[in-house]
Write a protein that binds this DNA or RNA. Structure first.
Length: 264
DNA sequence: CAACCTGTTCGCCA
DNA sequence: ATGGCGAACAGGTT
């Protein structure tokens, strides 16, 4: 599930626990999601600390706790954040369970492509600060995007949109949505796009990012019915623009859906 | 039962 | 050094 807007939605699930103290920490410390993290430090440091605030950047989330403690979470393919009540009994895939007096903060991830990091220090961790501007920010300029696309000019544009270093937060469905909206075929090489197509790509990127944040990101509601997203997984899905049956193929290593008539 | 999956990282190659 | 690509990771779902 989790791309830009879903990440924002899940980040806010834990808002219910803001300002409240963690009274117990239960981790499945041997699981792959903790690769590289000091599990014992999380268990030792987080108890008695308060959840202060959280942020998201692309698909990364950062949760700040009192006492200079920080947890980074990436949801991977199947990660989810949710709130349970204080009597919650965790099951197999509930790898991070942070108990507060009146509720329980849970991170679950069946496939374990997600990741949990821990940092103890006065400032946000170094791995948080790296990376380019968010695609829905003013700093994500057309010139910046164009420079990135040109640098990866020989790869199919679909693959370029999936590179988090240039398009943080974009995943498989967003990339398809953006290319469909910009009328660009997913196999086109970025270096061969016309000036007009680059403009359309930039506008579509920002539009899809912002509009999905206002629906999925706000309350997990559906984007408008005329989005490609609603058609792209159903066999025989149709182009919302011209009704053509969508094509499906692996592009940039991922299943890709597009309209062969209106995307060039 | 086999194929498929909304993500990232690694090693290999150009 | 940089960029592109395919495999690998794990387990649930179709």
């Amino acid at each position: 599930m989790p791309e830009l807007a879903e990440v924002e939605y899940f980040r806010k699930r834990w808002d219910a626990g803001l300002g409240e103290r963690i009274v117990a920490v239960q981790l499945h410390g041997e699981k792959r999601i903790f690769r590289g993290a000091d599990v014992r430090a999380i268990e030792r440091r987080l108890v008695r600390q308060k959840l202060l605030r959280s942020r998201a950047r692309g698909k990364q989330m950062l949760f700040e706790f009192s006492g200079d403690n920080w947890i980074g979470i990436h949801l991977g393919m199947s990660g989810k954040l949710r709130i349970e009540d204080e009597k919650f009994y965790p099951t197999k895939h509930d790898h991070v369970v942070l108990r507060q007096r009146k509720r329980t903060l849970v991170f679950s991830d069946a496939r374990q492509f997600g990741r949990v990091r821990f940092h103890h220090g006065a400032d946000a961790p170094g791995w948080w600060e790296a990376g380019g501007p968010e695609i829905h920010s003013r700093q994500f300029t057309k010139a910046r995007m164009q420079e990135f696309v040109r640098r990866h000019g020989r790869a199919p544009i679909k693959a370029v949109l999936l590179l988090q270093s240039g398009f943080p937060g974009i995943g498989n469905w967003m990339a398809d949505e953006i290319l469909w909206r910009a009328r660009i075929a997913p196999r086109r090489q970025g270096g061969k796009l016309t000036e007009a197509q680059l403009g359309a790509l930039w506008r579509s990127t920002r539009f899809v990012a912002r509009a999905s944040l206002l629906t999925i990101g706000r309350d997990n509601s559906n984007p408008p019915q005329n989005w490609l997203l609603h058609e792209r997984w159903t066999a025989g899905g149709k182009c919302p623009r011209d009704g053509q049956t969508l094509r499906r193929a692996t592009v940039g290593g991922r299943t890709t859906a597009w309209c062969a008539r209106c995307q060039r």
